[in-house]
Simulated scan of single mutants.
Amino acid sequence: MSTNFPAGPLCTRDSLAAELRAIGLRPDDTLLVHSSLRSLGWVCGGAGTVVMALLDTLGAEGTLVVPTHSGDISDPADWGNPPVPEAWWEGIRAAMPAFDARTTPTLGVGVVPETIRNWPGAVRSCHPQTSFAALGPRASAIVDGHALDCRLGERSPLARLEEAGARILLLGAGFDACTAFHLAEYRIPAPRTDTSFAVMTPQGRRWSTVRDTSISADRFDDLGADFERERPVATGTVGAAQTRLFDLADAVAYAEGWLAEHRPGTATI
């Protein structure tokens, strides 16, 4: 009999919900979650169990929001991981499927957001690259009206979350994953850049290019470390995951000053 057991601890729906409450999650929270399923340990039921534990903790009056980004719907000229031959670029632009909020899969944000995207009752914003999905009574108000030329700014769900008094849960994820810091980039002097994607219009599929604020997660880990030292951040563990809970508006306001000081005018896509 093998004794090569999986890494623990054993996490269940009830144990996760209890630990989420212990860190300070409230039944009526509007919550933006960045997560790493692997960091939790061995979860009985996988990502679905994590979603149910979050919903149990938030209750009927709470709203759960996650990034459901799909950065592969973008100009192949900008791809680097991996790049594709320049001879393919025009063919990719012509053939890339248009973003569909119902069916386009997530990329690079983890299995929990992909699970929530497919959860009964979930709604999703319609930006081809930086959409968010939400469950709960405030879900539609948060995801509606996501402008094509505003990935993570004033006309995105991040600004609606700020207005709703949302909090952020980093569940095994680091500050480098904190999308709310990008909202601050829209509020300081920053370069502009062209952003391209395939969209569906009343006239059919179209390759579209818009002008938007240039964004970057460069030094978000340093920004987060300073924020955590100077501002209220609840910390603890859920399963085996290091977990942080804090106010979204506070994080954005702190990031505005920090980014203006530490990388003025240097953001790049």
Rank of each mutant, 00 (worst) to 15 (best):
G236Y: 10
F227Y: 12
P137R: 02
T213I: 15
V143N: 02
F220M: 05
V238P: 02
A159V: 05
S156T: 03
L135A: 08
R187N: 06
P232M: 11
V210P: 10
L171D: 04
A177V: 12
Q129L: 03
E162M: 14
Q129V: 10
L152H: 10
R206Q: 15
T130E: 09
L169I: 11
T179S: 07
D212W: 04
A198F: 03
G165E: 03
I168E: 06
R155W: 09
D194C: 08
F220C: 08
G136Q: 01
D226P: 06
R187T: 00
R155N: 12
R151N: 07
F175A: 09
A217M: 13
T201H: 12
S214K: 00
R219D: 15
A141G: 13
T213Y: 09
R206D: 00
V143W: 04
R219G: 04
P189H: 12
T209P: 05
R192C: 08
A139F: 12
V238T: 02
I168L: 14
R219N: 13
A173Q: 03
T201R: 13
L183M: 00
L170W: 05
V238M: 06
R167E: 03
G145Y: 05
G172H: 06
L135W: 09
R206L: 09
G239H: 05
A159S: 09
G204N: 01
A139C: 13
C150T: 10
S131C: 12
C150W: 04
T201S: 09
A198Q: 04
G204R: 07
W119G: 03
